[in-house]
Amino acid sequence: MLAAAAFAPRLADSRRTADAPTQQAAETPTPPAAEEARAEAPAEAPTPPAPSPAPAAAPEPERTAAFRLAFDNRDIAGAQIAALRNVDQPGCLAACRRRADCRAYVFDKWNHACRLKADAIAFTLNPRATSGLRDDSPLPRAPAGPIAMERYPSRAFPGEGYRIDASEGPQACEALCRDDAVCVAFTFRLDEGVCHLFATTGEYFPNALADSGGKRQN
């Protein structure tokens, strides 16, 4: 018993001795050089924010075909792709612009009608027509055939025209127009005995005291 009791303090002392380095190691301060290195180490750079998505490209504006100035007193020979009624000239032009296959249009100013053309082969002389042609279309050939006269009985064109002559009747008035290169249409006033020659015409209207006519040429 005495031997065991004597051994117990020694065992306790040996355990305290064995634990001492561990406790001492835990209590050992960090060397100054390590502290300085830790202080001088650069801070980690922050992660840059993700770039904003690029804005969506704006849609290109719709392009419309450009047209030459209108050709008064000109019809166009070519393949017809559509016919419209009860329209004015700006409406006829707009209808052609809306179609990629429309190369030209013809507006009938006496009857408010519109014809759209896929091509334009030749101009024809027609006092009721005003036509338009895309800028990128070749100019049609000019009319060169013989001149023919159309008659419009009991019809009169509005206005005085560019020339007024006394005349014996509608036939004489027609001859005056045929022989004048500027004239495209005429009206003879039966009540006045005078002939009105027109270089361009508006919509004709009924008149029992008048006879009219116009030139045609292919």
Rank of each mutant, 00 (worst) to 15 (best):
V184Q: 12
A208S: 12
M149P: 05
A6Y: 09
R178H: 12
A26S: 08
R115Y: 12
L84T: 00
A57E: 12
R155C: 12
P90G: 05
R98Y: 03
E44N: 12
P90M: 06
E192R: 15
L133Y: 01
A79N: 10
R178M: 13
G213Q: 01
P55T: 13
V87D: 08
R189E: 05
R103S: 08
A58N: 06
D88F: 04
C173T: 11
L197K: 01
V194S: 07
A41P: 03
L69E: 13
N207V: 09
L139T: 10
P90D: 10
A83N: 04
D101Y: 02
R178Y: 08
G78V: 03
A120L: 05
R178V: 11
A34Q: 14
A54D: 11
A210E: 02
A100M: 11
T200C: 04
C92L: 11
A8Y: 15
T22Q: 08
A95F: 09
T22A: 11
R38L: 11
G213C: 04
T124R: 14
T22N: 12
A94M: 09
N126P: 02
Q217W: 01
L197R: 05
D108W: 06
Y162C: 12
H196V: 01
L84Q: 04
A58R: 14
T200Y: 05
G78W: 02
P127Q: 07
P53E: 15
Q171C: 03
T130A: 14
R63N: 09
A82D: 14
A50Q: 09
K117D: 03
D136R: 00
R178N: 12
A77D: 10
I81G: 01
G214L: 04
F188I: 06
A43N: 12
D19A: 15
E36P: 00
C195L: 03
R141P: 00
R189P: 00
T22Y: 12
A8V: 12
P51S: 04
R151C: 02
K117H: 15
A210T: 04
A79R: 14
A20Y: 14
S131N: 05
V106H: 06
N218Y: 10
S52F: 13
E40N: 14
N86C: 01
G91H: 08
R99H: 02
Q89A: 11
Q23E: 15
D119I: 00
L190M: 12
V182S: 11
P153G: 14
P146K: 13
P31M: 03
T64S: 10
D119T: 02
E160Y: 02
L125T: 07
A113N: 14
G91R: 14
G159N: 06
N111I: 02
T17R: 10
P158H: 10
R16M: 06
A210V: 07
K109F: 03
A3H: 15
A142P: 02
F188A: 01
Q80F: 04
R63C: 07
D180M: 11
R115V: 05
V182T: 10
D165Q: 09
L176W: 05
N207K: 05
L133P: 00
R99N: 00
C183F: 08
C183H: 05
C92A: 09
A148H: 09
D191K: 06
A20M: 10
C114H: 09
R38S: 11
R63D: 08
A4I: 07
G132P: 00
P29V: 07
G91Y: 06
A12I: 15
R99Q: 10
P61I: 04
S52W: 04
A37S: 10
A41S: 10
